[in-house]
Amino acid sequence: MPPLLVLPFPAIDPVIFEVGPFALRWYALAYIVGIVLAWRYMRILAQNERLWGNQKRPSPVDLDDFVLWGTLGIIIGGRLGYVFFYNPAYYLANPAEAIAIWSGGMSFHGGFAGTVIAMILFAWRRGLSIWTLFDLAACAAPIGLFFGRIANFINAELWGRPTDVPWAFVFPGAGPEPRHPSQLYEAALEGVVLFLVLRVLSHRFALLKRPGFLAGAFACGYGIGRSIVEFYRVPDAHIGYFGGFLTMGIVLSLPMILAGIIAMIWASRNKTGAAVS
């Protein structure tokens, strides 16, 4: 039976405006806004004395300089992750397309790996605590994830499975069936919920004083949230399911969950932290 109510998909042009050969797209704007707001939030956290005690952390200048490193890690890692994880056969046959970021195709897990590498190199060059930089980035990352998933919705991509829920949408190019707005589920779980959880952990429990805990909480929280949404999201057609129910998103998220749990256990054994009164 068809659903009694189907929400009309908001027909928003993916291109905000064009001037000659230049076109500003919502997806690019989401990256820009997400990175800028995440950088500002990291600066605010680093300058809040109450959250750190005697724990050494990056200076505002360090974080200003890190923006370029982090941006390159996100873009290069995200693109390489998509090329190698999601469509290696196509890009092996068409190697020139691998650098065509403007044509679409970014992987969060690849961007995560690229950002981790950028943070390790930056912390090494500046003599900073790697785990503290991880923690700051973890607290801010959900901001970028939120805007990125909203852009996925605007682009009518990465849509969900057919459903009869009253908040279903008929997505352009996805056939006539109403579908889960899985992009909005991800914006809520990976963006809003994860941000609030990390905010409570950093401010109420002062876990920035236990280097590595918040990074582990982010990795674990993202992996769980992404895995939940994967049961409502349609996997890439050329990949499909592993074992009849696992998707590439779940397969890549499981190591994040395990690594996050290990990091939180390790950080919890660090005796330098104390709760905020």
Rank of each mutant, 00 (worst) to 15 (best):
V229F: 02
A11N: 14
G77M: 07
S202G: 13
A93G: 12
A206H: 15
F134C: 14
G175R: 07
V192C: 06
Y90N: 05
A23D: 06
P211T: 02
G191L: 11
W69E: 00
I261Y: 01
L92G: 13
F112W: 10
D135I: 05
S59G: 12
A187K: 05
M256A: 09
P211M: 05
L198P: 06
M264C: 13
R149I: 07
A237F: 11
I76Y: 06
A237D: 11
W159C: 11
A46T: 02
F195V: 02
V192L: 14
G34D: 13
F171W: 05
P235I: 08
T71K: 01
W266P: 00
A138I: 09
F231M: 12
P2W: 12
T163R: 03
R233T: 08
E157D: 12
P176C: 12
F153L: 04
I99H: 02
F85Q: 06
F242S: 11
D64P: 03
P95W: 08
A168D: 06
S129H: 09
L214W: 04
L198C: 06
L198G: 01
R126F: 11
I74L: 15
S182T: 13
A137N: 06
L136K: 09
N48S: 14
P8E: 13
G249P: 00
G273Q: 07
I154V: 15
S59K: 02
M264H: 09
F213H: 06
I262S: 05
F84E: 03
A206K: 12
P142Y: 14
I224Q: 04
R79M: 09
A98T: 06
L72R: 01
G191A: 12
W26Q: 05
K271E: 14
G73A: 08
E190Y: 08
S107H: 04
M119N: 04
Y31N: 02
G77E: 07
Y185E: 08
F195H: 02
Y82F: 15
F231C: 06
N87I: 03
N270I: 09
H109M: 04
P166E: 10
I150T: 02
F85H: 04
